[in-house]
C-alpha cells in the first residue's frame, strides 16, 4: 500500500501548484448579553427543553422531572439514570438522591462490552456535564471522558446536560479559540444541538431515530 501512497502523492505533486489564496476576513459576533437567550431559543427551536437552575438545586429539579416522566424503557419500577460517580456533579446527584429509591443511579464504570445490554436497552436517562455551549447555533460542547463515556449522551432516550451559564460562548470559533482546542483534542469531541432526529421520510421530522428522543438542558446560573 505504500506504493499507492507514493503514486498518489507523486501525482499530486506533479500538478502545477495553484496559487494559495488569502483567507478573507470573516467573523460572527454575538454580544455577551444576548448569548444565554439566543442559546436557549435555538435549542428550544431544535426541540430541546431548556431550564435554568442553580448548582445547589438542580438535582431535585431533575428528580421531579424524571418522576413526572416515569420510566420509558419498561423497567418494573422507577427510572434508571446513568451518571458519572467520579465527577463533582455526579457526587452532587448521588448525595441529593439518597432518599429517592425510585431513581436508580447507574454508573457507566465498566467497558461497553460488559455493559452493552444495559446501555442499549435498560437505561432511561443519562446526566452529563458539558464544556459549555454555543449561542449562535444552540449547541452543547461535550468532551466525553473516562468518567463520562461517549455513549452516555447517545443511547438513553433522555439526555440531561448541565451547562454553566458563564460558559456559553458566542460561536464555535470562539469556543475553539478560548478553550484552545487545537492544542489537544479528546478521543471524541462532540457538538450536540438537540435530540436525535431525521427527516428522511417525506421530509417529516421525527425524533429519537437513533439517539435520545429528548434533550433536557439545565443551565446553571450560577
Amino acid at each position: 500500500m505504500s506504493n499507492a501512497r507514493t503514486a498518489i502523492l507523486d501525482r499530486l505533486r506533479a500538478a502545477r501548484p495553484a496559487p494559495l489564496p488569502v483567507l478573507p476576513e470573516w467573523s460572527v459576533t454575538i454580544p455577551p448579553a444576548e448569548r444565554l437567550n439566543r442559546f436557549s431559543e435555538r435549542l428550544e427551536a431544535s426541540h430541546a427543553e431548556v431550564v435554568t437552575s442553580t448548582s445547589g438545586h438542580w438535582p431535585s429539579l431533575l428528580a421531579e422531572r424524571l418522576k413526572a416522566r416515569g420510566n420509558t424503557q419498561g423497567s418494573a419500577n422507577g427510572s434508571s439514570v446513568h451518571y458519572p460517580p467520579g465527577t463533582h456533579h455526579g457526587r452532587c446527584l448521588a448525595d441529593a438522591w439518597t432518599d429517592k429509591p425510585e431513581l436508580r443511579l447507574v454508573a457507566y464504570d465498566q467497558p461497553v462490552e460488559v455493559l452493552k445490554d444495559t446501555l442499549v436497552h435498560r437505561v432511561d436517562a443519562a446526566v452529563t456535564a458539558t464544556r459549555g455551549g454555543i449561542a449562535e447555533t444552540g449547541t452543547l460542547i461535550l468532551w466525553p471522558s473516562a468518567e463520562e463515556p461517549r455513549l452516555m449522551s447517545l443511547l438513553p432516550p433522555l439526555h440531561v446536560a448541565l451547562v454553566e451559564a458563564k460558559e456559553i460562548y458566542g460561536t464555535l470559533t470562539e469556543a475553539m479559540m478560548v478553550q484552545n482546542w487545537s492544542a489537544g483534542l479528546p478521543t471524541n469531541a462532540l457538538l450536540i444541538s438537540g435530540p436525535s432526529k431525521t427527516a428522511d421520510i417525506e421530509q417529516t421530522l421525527a425524533y429519537g431515530v437513533h439517539g435520545p428522543k429528548e434533550l433536557l438542558v439545565i443551565v446553571l446560573d450560577p
Binding site: 479528546p186 438537540g194 439517539g211
Partner: peptide, 10 residues
C-alpha cells in the same frame, strides 16, 4: 444552522 451532532474523532 447546525446538525444535531458534529463528531470530532481524534
Amino acid at each position: 444552522a447546525i446538525t444535531t451532532y458534529v463528531n470530532f474523532i481524534s
